[in-house]
């Protein structure tokens, strides 16, 4: 009845060390980039860079430390649906705030 999980690697320690290194490097990188005012180039650039790095870090933790890479389809589906629902909540609410201001005035007359 359960989906068979993909086989765990015999020795996951090398993956763990790899992810650990990646996390440290990425933390350094995000601190380094944050020192520079990229908002002069494009206002949201700072936050985009920071969030991209954070997403990469989170993905690495989820996939390797939390074994999702080797987990059942069901587990993977739960992870994806969590992200999906979070995006629904953020996207719809933000869409409200970004499109306020009513109709173009020409239509109002």
């Amino acid at each position: 009845m359960a989906e068979h999980s993909h086989a765990h690697p015999d020795n996951p320690l090398k993956y763990y060390i790899g992810v650990f290194t990646l996390l440290l490097v990425m933390t350094g990188l995000t601190v380094f980039v944050a020192k520079y005012d990229l908002e002069h180039i494009w206002p949201p650039l700072n936050i985009i860079v920071a969030m991209t790095i954070a997403v990469i870090k989170a993905t690495a933790v989820v996939m390797i430390f939390m074994h999702v890479r080797w987990s059942s389809r069901l587990t993977q589906l739960i992870v994806v649906s969590g992200i999906f629902w979070l995006i629904i909540m953020l996207a719809f609410t933000v869409s409200d705030y970004y499109t306020r201001g009513g109709w173009p005035t020409t239509l109002g007359q």
Partner: peptide, 22 residues
């Protein structure tokens, strides 16, 4: 059911465009 909550807010300052989607 998770995509329609804004229909409780048609008479607030919610954007009309978002209101149409909801």
């Amino acid at each position: 059911g998770f995509l329609v909550w804004g229909h409780h807010m048609f008479t607030t300052s919610q954007s009309m465009y978002t209101g149409m989607v909801f």
